[in-house]
Design a protein around this nucleic acid. Structure first.
Lengths: 260, 260
DNA sequence: CGATGACTTGACTGCTGTCAACGTGCGTGG
DNA sequence: CCACGCACGTTGACAGCAGTCAAGTCATCG
């Protein structure tokens, strides 16, 4: 089962540390992040409240369920899994997040985190204190809109997940998962054909509501069909159209989901 | 299989038409709706942009997928199902909504409705033009917060649904569904022990990602166990604790989900 | 009162979860 | 540098449950 390992430069190389101090305007992720659509001066004011480059080691938490909600976080590098632990002690993974994405939104309503965000790899984050962000939003209409859109987008993403996890069969879920991650990688500037999954098979299975073995079997099935090339946690997409067909994707407004 | 029909006054009697013109402050649903937390004067300004009492006949649409997004709608009476139709023509029900709840939030990000909202019964709605609401929100910080919380709550609700539909077994899904609807009825002032479901079995099945027959079987099973009493679309809850146990509910922050 | 659609119940099949064994890669320590 | 151990991943066997198909019952409305 040894195969030509899909070797993409992707994010094996973490963001250069020297870049951690750059301004939002110069950040390679700025198009994905909050500043979108802001004027020069407004951007300045926003930047003043953001603290950049907070590092989080793999396995550590960005925030824990039960923590008071203080900030949103923008991921600069690394990836995050967000999960909920119920009273029985089962954990249920709600989402994975890649650089350029903003996490913490779900806590705005309650003021308390109900979910836990854990680093799948070493992270670097930008912290956006919410009270100040909120105050600023009342002064900068564009920022206000950006916040609303951010949350509305979250709703859309979750709707997609509801459909996938309640109406799709295992093969469709796995294919969809690969496509989704690929698409989001592409937004970050990666190839899109190649992706490195930061999470274990069990995490994927949990996220998709499947058994670990089912995910594994589907991956080998997709590989045997020639649609993808799997090597450990690296996946190369060989036949995008076939995968799309497999996922049951037709003409959904995909560009609206993780891009702005 | 004929049974003592659970006869609750609930919303068999629709809201008195004469009440449709009342101000938000006098509306029995005001605690569930936007005005929450607003000052006297602010409420006035908000009310001026709301048009009240738009009727929608059962089976008609409040908005259609593809429509331009113009307004949010608060439900005054009746119930709504919101669904998505994919390119294969399959419809997938995303949510049901009861009086006091606000629909349309998911379209804010894109500016276009991606879902269709259809009346399960005759409806009366309040329309909240979004551009004016949005403008007002920049002037009234509390309204701005209320909008954010509204959307964040939507995120929480959908998270719950993701968990239920991807991690729970059929018996848990059905039990959970009954509890959820009951809880939301209770917020509207109904008994909570009795509820009338406006939707068909097929709708419930679609929503929960199950086969129609599975829903039916689970309902009869719950009835045979003595937890509930089913009579057509009326359901009476006989043993709340047993149902909760069945649903796998333990100590989730339930009060944060549909209440403010 | 009949027709139509909604719901229930039954029989059966296929798929997915579970359990279990085996393979593989990686890091550690000798 | 190699050997070992451990965690992760894959593969196989099997059983149970949910989906499908089909028939039958019930409610609603003209």
């Amino acid at each position: 089962m040894k195969s030509t390992s899909p070797s993409c430069p992707s994010h094996g190389s973490v963001v250069d540390l020297s870049s951690l101090r750059v301004a939002c305007a110069d950040c390679s992720l700025s198009e994905l992040c909050v500043p979108l659509g802001l004027e020069e001066g407004d951007l300045d004011r926003l930047e003043r409240i953001i603290s950049r480059g907070r590092p989080v080691a793999r396995g550590s938490r960005v925030y824990d369920a039960g923590d008071a909600f203080r900030s949103l976080y923008a991921i600069r590098s690394g990836s995050v899994k967000i999960y909920r632990t119920d009273a029985e002690g089962d954990t249920q993974i709600m989402s994975f997040h890649l650089p350029g994405e903003i996490i913490g939104v779900e806590a705005i309503a309650t003021g308390t985190h109900t979910l836990t965000a854990e680093a799948l790899e070493d992270l670097s984050l930008c912290e956006l204190p919410f009270d100040r962000l909120d105050t600023l939003a009342t002064q900068i209409p564009n920022l206000h809109h950006q916040l609303l859109r951010l949350m509305s987008r979250e709703v859309l993403i979750e709707q997609e997940q509801i459909i996938v996890s309640s109406h799709r069969k295992p093969e469709q879920r796995v294919a969809h998962f690969i496509l989704m991650m690929s698409e989001r990688s592409r937004l970050r500037g990666c190839d899109g054909r190649c992706l490195r999954l930061g999470m274990r098979r069990g995490d994927i299975a949990n996220y998709l509501g499947l058994a670990l073995e089912t995910v594994s079997r589907q991956l080998t099935r997709l590989q045997q069909a020639g649609w993808i090339q799997v090597s450990n946690r690296d996946i190369e997409i060989l036949d995008l159209d076939a995968l799309r067909a497999e996922a049951g994707i037709t003409a959904s407004p995909r560009e609206n989901r993780h891009a702005s």
